[in-house]
Design a protein around this nucleic acid. Sequence first.
RNA 1: GGUUCCAUCGUCUAGGGGUUAGGACGGGAGAUUCUCAGUCUCUAAACAGGGGUUCGAUUCCCCUUGGAACUACCA
Length: 491
Amino acid sequence: MEVRVRYAPSPTGLQHIGGVRTALFNYFFAKSNGGKFILRVEDTDRERYSDESLQDLYDTLDWLGIKWDEGPVVGGPCGPYIQSERFSIYQEYAKKLVEMGKAYYCYCSAERLEALRQKQIEEKSPVQGYDGHCRNLTAEQRAELEAQGIKPVIRLKVPREGSTTFHDVLMGDITRDNKDISPDPVLLKSDGFPTYHLANVIDDHMMGITHIMRAQEWIPSGPLHVLLYQAFGWEIPTYCHLPMVMGNDGHKLSKRHGSTSVRDFRKKGYLPEALLNYVSLVGWSYDGEKEFFSREELEKCFSLEKINKAPGVFDYQKLDWFNAQYIRRKSDSELADLLMPYLVEAGLLEEGAKDRLLAFVPGIKDRITLLSDVVPMASFVKDSGEPEASLLIPKKMDATGTLDALKHVYDTVKVGLEAGKNDEELQQDLMDLATKLGIKNAGVFNPLRTAVTGMAVSPPPFSCIRLLGKEESYRRIERAISVLEKEIENV
RNA sequence: GGUUCCAUCGUCUAGGGGUUAGGACGGGAGAUUCUCAGUCUCUAAACAGGGGUUCGAUUCCCCUUGGAACUACCA
């Protein structure tokens, strides 16, 4: 039988790490089994729905390179794949359940329900949830309530006796006494839209979903869903509840732990391959040794058996490490293209200046963890004015010695640059110069660095000169020389 | 409160009746270097506790403890 799995998010917020992890595991499971990955939009909560969230869903999956076989935009044989467009289907099936005597209309007000809940919490009642108030309404009572214009909801009749068991690939059998299952949950809301439970079960069945892979937070509603499948007389899919993704305090990952939306990570300059690689390793491993996986590799080697049962803490530091690793694997040209938008946005570079950026890239490739790290490193492009003499003079050197060194450096650099030498050759020239002058390498490199960038810490001087351009670099070195000359005069 | 799930270094994990319990991030030390990074080498660091089963348990079973999730006309 063909494997058919789905990722079924609700567009009520930006895609976050936890959701993406679920999407990835479903996708990789489908691909590694030659099955289909289906995307379904569960937009039955009209209160919290937003177009932005829906767009963010598409953008996120695109960015990660995850293509869905069936779903919105691409269509498929089981459409529509957006639940709000399946409105009438849920109505029909909910009514069918009522006709079969497995569900009933409920007219209770939100106020009554709220009061009930408060009371249960205060009393620390072992039973929490609906009290079945409308379970046995007579036709007359119903007619009267209808006449008052009350829009009813439809609730499932959950058996009070017995227990319900479902099998989970990872967890084994999970059993719950029926009395502990959410008592008579709402299936169809008063606005006519289904709740998650109803829509989810109907769609998974109608779309031929074979495996339900979702986070462990859904375990408690497993028995309820099984009850629903049984009520309809449908086959129960295979369950696989994924370990949750936690923050460093051991609680479900959320905004208070830091960025969690993929959009944030993307904006900060994380690479999709790094995020995908790292997220795939939270709750899953291959052999405990190999840890670099491309999307294509994961599409082949992902397997359910290697999923961990215990929840995993999302480690921002390890993600950073992965990102730095992936940045280093980029070609200079690719990286330059990736970096350009950050520099343009910061007003440090013009769109067309890729050549200059390309020459700067080798100097920063090993120094950045996030793409956005390039901004502070290239900030010297904006002239911060005449540098302080003290900044120009290296430790254990004086103004006179520094001036002498910088003049020689200037000549050497200018000659080399005009002769078209590369960074390695220029570097060698300066090292030779230091030897000739009888000073340490730092004595030539540091004055050059501070003269050109105005910073004590910077990428290699020649990389900076490439980014800045020859003429501006010469101007800054000349300026530094005059600063030193003035300094000597004043003493 | 009730229900369910979970438990190997700080973190992600490998392993599995007999191992020096392996790897990675992070930490520490050293080397390299023009600053900062990076890179390389070395290093500290774990089977939650108690009972069983067994010749032998970190591994299998039970209990305890700890943690988490759920408990909506949200998903």
